[in-house]
Design a protein around this nucleic acid. Structure first.
Lengths: 192, 192
DNA sequence: AACCACATTGACTGATTAGTCAGTCCATGA
DNA sequence: TCATGGACTGACTAATCAGTCAATGTGGTT
């Protein structure tokens, strides 16, 4: 990854997360990266391509952070809890990056092609969910629905933690409680 | 409410939900409402004012739908369940409106002034949550966090129902299961 | 008919934007 | 010292948009 390319991605992260995709001009991104506007288009063919690159970079970083210290155990719940903890910590450590990831995910700025490439990249997380479903940890809930509930619970948990500036023990406890609410909720549903 | 005003709001709902706020031009809205572009600005001082009006209208409709057949009981959980059911049914009956409400809520297109006016309008729902917190139904969870979890669970439940085109008994069951997951999760947390 | 008040219109404007391109700069090597 | 190629630049362009306004249409009153 070129120096300038990384500079442009960092500038984009800053401006997108601060002003949003639609209020950020390519000229401004170049200015913040301290390069000419033309340079941006040497590295990225369009604003969309730049957005894709930013999204990919953020998800890749998030994945690396989660996989750090990750060793799969036989207890699938523990594995999922690991992901829950590390995702939350990543979000609290890099709030700007987390907010932008959330923003790009909710809006539809990211191309299908990048989403597909990320399926490959994040395979271990999908495998985790498939394991849980196979083992009956989701009761009668379809795997996709259980996953959706997990994602939205995570979002709510992190947002509240950010809003209240949790750190240290208070943060740890909040993350743990959030996981309990989720897991107790899901496992309260009986299988067929 | 004038005829043309309502026409413009309906056109805006259609186009915003289909193409998004940023890809919808005022000229296009006017065209879809079959009025001149100038007319739009006779009724709404700006695109932002129009957006505010749309958001207010949608929330007002949603509230009316929920309050239909609503009689407060002493069992706060039942009251909340009523809201859960009716909100879900509103979303399934008016998916375009629900999607747009969600979109406007996530993005920051709506002015603070309208949000404040809506606090008044939706007071009965906030009272419901305050009651639940007072009665200890949220255990040791702060009311704001419990509320956030409810909102995100609702979002996930509705999105899944829409994606799978649930209707009839399947829909009823899905809504009920969604509430169980939420409520069992929340009430699994002990009070202090 | 004549008049008026006001609703409606759409061509127009000024501002803004993604993307271009002719030219500059500079490191390398002969 | 000069030539070469490619990285870099920012003024520029074509397109787009929110919002304006002078002209036109309309319904009511005398």
């Amino acid at each position: 990854m070129t120096d300038k390319k990384q500079l442009l991605i960092e500038a984009t992260i800053d401006l997108f997360s601060r002003d949003g995709f639609w209020n950020t001009t390519t000229a401004n991104i170049a200015k913040h990266a301290k390069v000419g506007t033309g340079t941006l288009f040497n590295y990225f063919s369009s604003k969309e391509a730049l957005t894709d690159a930013v999204y990919f970079e953020l998800k890749r970083e998030m994945k690396s952070y989660i996989q750090k210290d990750y060793t799969e155990t036989k207890d699938t719940m523990l594995n999922i809890e690991h992901v829950w903890y590390h995702y939350a910590h990543w979000a609290m450590e890099f709030p700007v990056r987390y907010d932008l990831l959330d923003q790009l995910w909710v809006s539809n700025q990211v191309s299908q092609e990048v989403e597909n490439r990320l399926l490959e990249e994040l395979k271990f997380m999908h495998k985790l969910l498939a394991d849980a479903a196979t083992k009956g940890l989701f009761g009668s809930l379809p795997q996709e629905y259980a996953t959706a509930i997990m994602c939205s619970s995570m979002q709510a948990m992190i947002k509240y933690a950010q809003a209240n500036n949790f750190s240290g023990d208070a943060l740890e406890q909040h993350i743990a409680i959030g996981f309990s609410v989720l897991w107790n909720g899901i496992s309260s549903i009986e299988g067929n």
